[in-house]
Design a protein around this nucleic acid. Sequence first.
DNA 1: GTTTCACTGGGCAGTTTGCCCAGTGAGACG
DNA 2: CGTCTCACTGGGCAAACTGCCCAGTGAAAC
Lengths: 160, 160
Amino acid sequence: MAIDHLDERIIVLLAREPRIGVLEMSRRLGVARGTVQARLDRLQSNGVIRGFGPEVDPAALGYPVTAFATLQIRQGQGADVRAHLATVPEVLELHTTTGTGDMLCRLVARSNADLQRVIDRVVGFDGIVRAATAIVMENPVPLRIIPLVEQAARDRDGRE
Amino acid sequence: MAIDHLDERIIVLLAREPRIGVLEMSRRLGVARGTVQARLDRLQSNGVIRGFGPEVDPAALGYPVTAFATLQIRQGQGADVRAHLATVPEVLELHTTTGTGDMLCRLVARSNADLQRVIDRVVGFDGIVRAATAIVMENPVPLRIIPLVEQAARDRDGRE
DNA sequence: GTTTCACTGGGCAGTTTGCCCAGTGAGACG
DNA sequence: CGTCTCACTGGGCAAACTGCCCAGTGAAAC
C-alpha cells in the first residue's frame, strides 16, 4: 500500500513521541481528530503499523552482548532446527537466507563467556552442520524506520 | 538491572496488548494502580523499556524484500562508511562486528531487482572493499523479546 | 448532474490519567 | 527490640482523552 504525506507525518510523530494521544496529534498536524483516527485505523488494518509493543532493551535486562550467527543446516532438517531455535530465549530473531549460510539468527548473551553457552545450546542440535558467529561491537544505526517511511511517502508523491 | 515477576508480567501484558491502559493492567495483575505506574516509570527510567514506538512493517510500505549484507571496510574508513550508510533509507540497521566482515547491515528493497539498486548505493562508496549479501526468504522467528524477559525474571527469582 | 468519499468541527457520556494522601507490612539497621 | 525506610494499598479529585455520534462541505469519479 502507498502512504501519503499525512500518513507519513502521523507515523513520524508517533515514532518521536509515542505517548502522544490522537487529540494532541490532530492539533499538531492541523487536521480534525476524526481524520487522524481514521488514518490510524487504516494504517493498522493495512498492516503498515503492526502495533505499539514496548521496545525492551536486552542490555538493560542484563544481556549486553549481541551476536549474529550464520548456520548451515543439514538437508531436510530445516523445520526441526527452526523449532529448536524457537525454544532458545536468547535467539531474538531467525531468518532463512540465500547465500553462504542457510539461516541467520540474532543472539544475545550476558557476557562473552555466556555467549559460548548460548552458542553451544544453539548448535547443540543434530541438524546444524556449522555455525559462524559475528559478535556485535557497535551499533551505529539502531533499527530505524523513519527514513524509509519518508522515502515511501516521497515515492508516492512523485508517482501521483 | 534485574526484573522481578511483576515486572515480567507487566512487560508481557504490554507486549500482548499494547493499547492497554495502566488502570486495566492493574486490574488484570491484581495490584494497585499506583504500583503499576511506579513500576512502569522505573522500567522506563532504567532503560529496560525504551519506548512504545509504532512497529512499522516495511513489507506493507512496499518493501517486501529483506537482506543482510556483510561489508568489508578499508582500514580507517569506518566512520565515513557509517555516515554514508546512515543516509540510505533502505538501511534499517547497521552493526560493526568481529569475524569475517567488518559490518553487518539489514536492508530492505521493493523487489529483488530493486535490491540491486540498494546494494549499488550501499557499496558505491569508496571505503567499502567487498559486500556479501544474503537475501531473507523466510522469517520463522520474528524479532521477539518475551522469552528473554521471562528468562531474565526466572534468573532473578533463582538468584534471590 | 449526481454520487461517493474523505475531511471538518462540534457535541456527548464514560473512562482514564496524573496527582495527591494516609495507612500498612516487611525488611534493614542501630 | 525499637525505629526507619520503602514499596504497596486503596481511595479521592479535577482535567483530559477516548469512542462514538452527527450534519455540512468540497473534490473527484461516474
